[in-house]
Design a protein around this nucleic acid. Structure first.
Length: 467
RNA sequence: GGUGGGUUGGCCGAGAGGCGAGGCAACGGACUGCAAAUCCGUCUACACGGGUUCAAAUCCCGUACCCACCUCCA
């Protein structure tokens, strides 16, 4: 069984063949850090984290680059509105994004380059494009440099569109463009923009266009040809189309496979357009744990549109808790968390089939059911639980992953104190049960339940957990 | 105008010509003092209208509704 991936450039599932056997170069467009990260934003992070983990689990040596866009029109506008420096806004949002990723156990990439840290590479690439006749400085003296779409016959190949069929933006300002579809590689500094948001270039002070950064950074860290380029569907056009055009026009083969994750919407609306506040990561994490939100995102296929709702999120959380409870039972029986085991064949087949995480999750439930049947057989149980743990780990959902252990020393002390108190009450309840005084026994259980403590009687005596 | 995607049981969500994903909820049974958990079982769905086929949720034609992108977007 080999890994197959849906390539959105060819619009089909293809066998994954790396350029260099055993190695994968992966580039994912990260975020423009202009506002608080919400659930939609992190989906891409989680989806490509799963890809990266699966590639590693499959034995590949992965170089994963995920950039941060820290200079663009919106950052300048928003920071001006807020009366703060643009780099301060970008930096704060970048820190929030890093925290959100950490909260969801999205592993850091090999490197996370900033657009502003790669201006020389971009200038170099733009110069190459001008030399090759695929770009030109605007004739209007604005200092802008544009990519000449008409000079690149293959333009539109990624999204299968003909240049003449494209509709120009209603608000398009032709500026110094030769064709309305030409896009900016370099934007000359405007008098209204802060001096700090400009860099020197052969065409005067200015800042990079949006697309050139990814071409330059992917080229720098992964080389002119690399394996997989990812991002959200909305980026296919214009962003990825333009990236590919400029990179190839500059003489680089660029990405072999393109992967795009679908949207999360609320009430059918794009998250970026709708509300906002209630769906930022910190807000959502007040209602469910990070691991539960991640499970919710992983349980849907990355190319499927997800209609976000707290109800569905709650159901997903219930499903995850079932798996978690099984592993905890296994750990109690075995005396320690199960060692990592072997992923079952169905899981592997599902993941190899274009990261079929829904079927992979179903496979986990199958193994868990088998495990629940052999709770009194330590060897069989260890095998099933180890397998479940390993599969969860591949999805970034291992309950014992240090990423989820947020509690500090104080939390541990608190947990120990609660445990002592609950155990005292359970001892009283057991006494009552022994005396067939079930009214008292149930009263104690109800009191604990009201406090959020669930009691379960097992062969080894009562266990408690926080609901 | 151009380019794509979607519509699946009470709900969430896979699948992509036959072998009926999975989860959540519900119901019945086993277990339990009663529960919980767990196990066993039940609940036969694919927007609509045609067609192809021995066989269609899956392929074809048409219709309806929804969504995304077309130079700010995960």
């Amino acid at each position: 069984m080999t890994l197959r991936l849906y390539d959105s450039a060819t619009r089909e599932v293809r066998d994954f063949v790396p350029l260099v056997p055993g190695r994968v170069g992966l580039y994912v467009c990260g975020l423009t850090v202009q506002s608080e990260p919400h659930v939609g934003h992190v989906r891409s992070g989680v989806n490509f984290d799963v890809l990266q983990r699966w590639l590693r689990a499959s034995g590949f040596d992965v170089t994963f680059i995920r950039n941060i866009t820290d200079i663009d029109d919106k950052i300048l506008i928003k920071s001006a509105d807020q009366g703060r420096a643009w780099y301060n806004l970008a930096y704060e949002m970048s820190r929030q994004l890093t925290q959100a990723y950490a909260d969801l156990n999205v592993a850091p990439p090999t490197y996370e380059p900033l657009a502003t840290g790669h201006i020389p590479e971009m200038v170099e690439m733009i110069a190459t494009l001008i030399e090759r006749g695929h770009a030109y400085p605007a004739a209007d003296g604005s200092g802008d440099v544009y990519f000449d779409v008409r000079s690149w016959a293959a333009y539109g190949e990624l999204t299968h569109q003909g240049v003449d069929d494209m509709e120009s933006a209603a608000d398009a300002d032709p500026r110094g463009k030769r064709d309305p579809r030409d896009f900016a590689l370099w934007k000359g500094r405007k008098a209204t923009e802060p001096e700090t948001a400009s860099w020197p270039s052969p065409w005067g002070r200015g800042r990079p266009g949006w697309h050139i950064e990814c071409s330059a950074m992917a080229g720098k860290y992964l080389g002119g040809a690399f394996d997989i380029h990812g991002g959200g569907v909305d980026l296919r056009f214009p962003h990825h189309e333009n990236e590919q055009a400029q990179s190839r026009a500059a003489g680089h083969a660029f990405a072999s496979y393109w992967m795009h994750n679908a949207w999360i919407t609320t009430a059918g609306e794009k998250m970026s357009k709708s509300l906002g506040n209630s769906l930022t990561i910190p807000a959502v994490l007040q209602r469910v744990r990070g691991v539960e939100l991640r499970y919710y995102l992983v349980a849907a296929h990355y190319r499927s549109h997800v209609e976000f709702s707290f109800e569905a999120l709650g159901e997903a959380a219930a499903g995850y808790r079932r798996i978690e409870a099984f592993l905890q039972r296994a750990a109690d029986t075995l005396g320690a968390p199960p060692d990592h085991g072997v992923a079952c064949a169905d899981f592997v087949a599902a993941m190899d089939d274009d990261l079929g995480t829904p079927a992979a999750v179903a496979a986990i439930f199958e193994v868990m059911r088998e495990g629940n049947k052999v709770l009194d057989d330590p060897v069989a149980l260890a095998g099933a639980a180890g397998s479940v743990r390993t599969m969860l780990d591949i999805l970034g959902l291992d309950p014992w992953d240090p990423a989820w252990q947020r509690g500090g020393a104080d939390d541990e002390k608190l947990a120990a104190a609660v445990d002592a108190l609950v155990r005292g009450l359970l001892a009283q309840r057991n006494q009552a049960r022994a005396e067939k005084d079930f009214a008292t026994a149930d009263l104690i259980r109800d009191q604990l339940s009201a406090a959020g403590v669930d009691v379960t009687d097992t062969a080894d005596g009562p266990k408690w957990s926080v609901s």
